[in-house]
Design a protein around this nucleic acid. Structure first.
Length: 282
DNA sequence: CACTCTACCTGTGCGC
DNA sequence: TGCGCACAGGTAGAGT
C-alpha cells in the first residue's frame, strides 16, 4: 500500500537510478485497461504523450508528477500518476512481456518501457497541461508542511486525530499505515480531538509526523511483520493487533475509526494533550 | 462543517 | 479440496 515513503522510493528509483526515466522519449502509449486513464479520452491521452520527453519526476503526497517536453516548442504536459492501493510503476527493457496486471505500457526510446501494473485497478493516470487540476485540492506535503499550517489545521474543529491525518487536504501523503504509526509514536489515542492538543501536544505530533516519515523514507518503505514488505521500516502497531506492544507489552488493539482499521496500544496511547480522560477512550 | 456510507476492485485467508 | 464470503484500503461523491 504505497503511502508517502513508498511513493518517494518509486520516484527516486525512476529519477535517480539507472536507467533513469529522465531524458527518455515516448514512442507510444498502450492503454490495456479502460479505466486507468482519468480526465481525458484514451485516444487524446495516447496522442498527447507521443513524442514527448520526460524532463522531471517528482511527488506531492502520494501523487507522482512527471514533467514532459513536447519537443515542438509548445508548452509541455504533465503525466500524473496515483498508485492507490496496489499500483506499481517500473521500467522494463525491450521485449519484456506485459504482466498479468499491466494496465498501461509506455514504450520509450532505446527499447525501454514504463509499465504501470495494478491488480485492483484502483490506480489512475492523468495527462494535463496543469497538474494543479489534479493536485490543487491537496494540502501541503506531509514532509514539507509549515508548522503554522499544521497547527492551524489541528486547532479547528473537533475532528479526531486519525481522520485528520488521513485528510489529504490537511497534509497529504499519510495513509492508514503511517497514521497509526505516527499516533503510536506520539502517544495519542486515535480518537483524540485535534483541537484538544495543547501547544506541546501539537509540537510533538508535528515532530513525529516528520520523524516517522523521514525514517520510513530512509528505510525505503514499510515492513508489516513480514506480511507486506516494501522496505525496512518495521511497524509498531499497524498489522500487529493481538500481538504485544514492543514498548510496554500490552496487547495491540484494533478498532474502526473513520471506516478504517485502526491499530493502537491501549497503554502507550492514552495521552489527550493535557487532559487525562483515560477511561473515555479505553 | 463533520461525519458516514457506498462504489470502485480483486487477491487473500478464513470457516465450513 | 473447494466453495462462499468478509476483508483490505485511497478517493470521489452522495447522503445525513
Amino acid at each position: 500500500m504505497p503511502e508517502l515513503p513508498e511513493v518517494e522510493y518509486v520516484v527516486r528509483t525512476l529519477r535517480d537510478t539507472e536507467p533513469s526515466l529522465i531524458g527518455r522519449r515516448i514512442e507510444q502509449a498502450h492503454v490495456l485497461s479502460e479505466n486507468v486513464v482519468a480526465g481525458s479520452l484514451e485516444t487524446v491521452f495516447c496522442h498527447g504523450l507521443q513524442g514527448s520527453t520526460f524532463t522531471s519526476v517528482s511527488r506531492l503526497g502520494k501523487y507522482i508528477i512527471c514533467g514532459l517536453d513536447s519537443g515542438s516548442g509548445s508548452d509541455g504536459n504533465w503525466l500524473v500518476i496515483h498508485l492507490r492501493m496496489t499500483g506499481r510503476l517500473y521500467l522494463v527493457s525491450g521485449g519484456e512481456a506485459l504482466g498479468q496486471h499491466t494496465r498501461l505500457s509506455i514504450s520509450l526510446d532505446q527499447g525501454w518501457a514504463l509499465h504501470f501494473d495494478d491488480p485492483r485497478k484502483f490506480g489512475r493516470v492523468w495527462l494535463t497541461p496543469n497538474p494543479l487540476d489534479i493536485t490543487g485540492k491537496l494540502g501541503p506535503d506531509a514532509l514539507a508542511a509549515p508548522r503554522d499550517t499544521f497547527f492551524q489545521g489541528l486547532g479547528k474543529g473537533r475532528r479526531a486525530l486519525k481522520p485528520l491525518l488521513l485528510d489529504q487536504g490537511f497534509v497529504c501523503g499519510i495513509g492508514n499505515i503511517y497514521a497509526d504509526e505516527i499516533l503510536f509514536r506520539a502517544g495519542f489515542h486515535p480518537l483524540t480531538p485535534g483541537s484538544s492538543l495543547d501547544t506541546d501536544g501539537k509540537s510533538r505530533l508535528y515532530a513525529t509526523v516528520l520523524s516517522v516519515l523521514q525514517e520510513a523514507v530512509a528505510a525505503g518503505g514499510a515492513n508489516i511483520d513480514g506480511v507486506f514488505k516494501a522496505g525496512g521500516f518495521m511497524t509498531a502497531v499497524y498489522g500487529r493487533d493481538g500481538k504485544p506492544c514492543r514498548q510496554c507489552g500490552a496487547t495491540i488493539l484494533k478498532i474502526r475509526v473513520a471506516q478504517r482499521g485502526t491499530h493502537y496500544c491501549p497503554q502507550c496511547q492514552l495521552f489527550r494533550g493535557g487532559e487525562n480522560s483515560q477511561e473515555k477512550y479505553s
